[in-house]
Write a protein that binds this DNA or RNA. Structure first.
Lengths: 253, 253
DNA sequence: GATAAACGCTGACGCAGCGTCAACCGCAAG
DNA sequence: CTTGCGGTTGACGCTGCGTCAGCGTTTATC
C-alpha cells in the first residue's frame, strides 16, 4: 500500500504542508519520488510518522525528534528527562505568572470599588508610606517625632485641589531652578524666588514654618544621597547644591 | 533628565533593539528625535516603559499591552481575566504533557531492565492482547475456546527466529497476492502458491491444520470488515476477496 | 479525444519578538 | 587625522508551519 501526500495527510491527521516541511528538514523522507516528482510513502513511513507525531504530542522540538528517531545511539531517556525538566520549569513559570495576574486583577477590583475621594486618600497614604520608608528615621531624628507626625497629619488633610497646587508649585520651582542655574548665582533675584517657592511648597505640609528648620532641610538635601538624587534626576547635576545655597542665603536675610 | 537608547536600555534592563522595536511597532515613542536622528526619552517614557515591562512580565502580547496603555476605555480587567484563563489552559496542557512524558520515561525504564528474551515475550503478549481485543469473541465462537487458547499457546512458544520466519512468509504472501491479482485468476498456479503460503503462515500458530477450518477462516476474511481492511490496506482493494477465492479453490482440491 | 476538476510540485511571504550582522554617520579624545 | 564609542536604518534568522501564486499531472466526464 502506498500513499501520496494527501492520503498520508488524511490518514495521519496532519496537513500536506507539514509533510512537505518534514521532508524539507529531513525529518520524514518519502520512500520514493516518482517520475512526476510526486512524494510516495509506504507503511514504513506511516509508522515513522506515527512515532514523530507521538513525540510531537509531548511537545518536543522537531530537531530533537529527528535525533530520537534516526540516531540509534541517541539517549531517548535522557532527552525525555530533560524535556520533563523544561516542562516543570515552564509549569513553575506559569504558576508565578498566574499569581501576579491574579494580584493585578484584585488591585483593579479594589480600585473600582473605591470612590474618587477614597482613591485620593489611598494615594496620599502611599506617598506617606513611601516617604516613611525612605526618610522616616532621619527626619524624626532631626525634627522630632511630633513635627513629623504633624506634617503627615497636615498632608493627610490636603484636598485634591490643594495637592494639585502643591505639585504645580514644585513644578515651577524646578523650572526656576533650571534657568537660575544658567545664571549661576545663588544669591541673585531668581535664587530668591526659588527659595520662596520652596518655602511655599513646604508650607503645604509643615504646620509651622521656621527659617532654622528650612536651612536645616536644605543642608540635608546635599548630605543625603537620596534627596540629592531626587533633585539631580529631575533637574540636572548640582541642582541640590544650588538649591541649598539659595535657601541658605534666603534664610540669612 | 533625558536618556538616549543606551541609557534607557540600561536603566530599564532591556536591549537597545527592544527599544527600537517598540518604537517601530508604536508601543513606545521617544519624546523627541533630535537633529542627528537620535531617539531621546524623558521620565515620562521611563514610566511608560515600566508599565509595558510590567505587563510583559505577565506574558501579555505587545499588541494587547499597547491597547491597555494607550486606549483609555480599554477594559484592563477583562484583558487580564482572559489572559488568566489562557494561562490556566496552558497550565492544564503542560500538566497533561508531563503525565505523558513521565509515562514514556517509565516505559523506557521497564524496557531497559528487560533482557532481550523478556522483551520478546512482552512483545508477543502485546500481539495476543491486540488480537484478543480485536477478534477474541468472534474466533472463539467459530473455533471454540480450546482451539483459540491452543493457538495462543503455540504463539507464546515461538522463538524469535521462528517469529521472523513467520513474518517473512507473510511478506512473501503479500507479494504473491499482488502479482497474482494482476493475472486475476484465483484458480491459477500463482493462486495455489498463495493458498499454500497462507497455510504455511497459519501453521506457525495453529496446532492442528484442517482444510475446513482454513476455508472457514477465508470466509471470515471477507465478511469481517477488520480482516478485510487488514489485507486491503497492506495490498490493494479486492485483496481479501482474492485471497478467499484462492483458499476456497485450494481446500476443495 | 478534449476538457475540467482535482491533485501534485516548487518557491516565497508571513507570524512574534526580538538577536545579530552590515554599512553608514556624528562626536569627542589622543 | 584617526580611533573609538555612541547613534541610525535596513535586512536576515529563528520555529513550525498556513497560505498564496504559478505551473505541471492525473483522473473523471462528456
Amino acid at each position: 500500500m502506498t500513499y501520496t501526500v494527501q492520503k498520508l495527510a488524511e490518514l495521519a491527521g496532519v496537513s500536506k504542508r507539514t509533510l512537505r516541511y518534514y521532508n524539507q528538514i529531513g525529518l520524514l523522507h518519502p520512500a520514493e519520488i516518482n517520475a512526476s516528482g510526486y512524494r510516495i510513502y509506504t507503511e514504513k513511513e506511516v509508522d515513522l510518522l506515527q512515532q514523530i507525531l507521538f513525540f510531537r504530542e509531548l511537545d518536543l522540538d522537531l530537531d530533537t525528534i529527528k535525533s530520537i528517531i534516526y540516531s540509534p545511539d541517541f539517549d531517548r531517556k535522557k532527552a525525555l528527562e530533560e524535556h520533563r525538566d523544561s516542562l516543570l520549569d515552564k509549569q513553575e513559570h506559569i504558576r508565578m505568572l498566574l499569581g501576579n495576574v491574579e494580584k493585578s486583577i484584585q488591585a483593579i477590583e479594589r480600585k473600582v470599588e473605591m470612590t474618587d475621594s477614597e482613591k485620593f486618600i489611598g494615594f496620599k497614604e502611599e506617598k506617606i508610606a513611601e516617604n516613611e520608608t525612605n526618610y522616616g528615621e532621619e527626619i524624626r531624628e532631626v525634627y522630632g517625632k511630633e513635627a513629623v507626625e504633624a506634617s503627615n497629619a497636615k498632608f493627610r488633610g490636603l484636598t485634591e485641589e490643594q495637592y494639585r497646587k502643591m505639585e504645580a508649585v514644585e513644578q515651577r520651582l524646578f523650572e526656576k531652578l533650571k534657568s537660575a542655574m544658567q545664571a549661576g548665582d545663588p544669591t541673585g533675584p531668581e535664587a530668591l524666588q526659588i527659595a520662596e517657592l520652596h518655602r511655599e511648597w513646604l508650607e503645604f505640609t509643615w504646620p509651622a514654618y521656621s527659617k532654622e528648620a528650612h536651612a536645616g532641610l536644605a543642608d540635608m538635601y546635599v548630605q543625603d544621597e537620596r534627596f540629592k538624587a531626587y533633585y539631580e534626576n529631575n533637574i540636572q547635576e548640582g541642582a541640590a547644591q544650588f538649591l541649598r545655597d539659595s535657601i541658605q542665603h534666603y534664610t540669612k536675610l
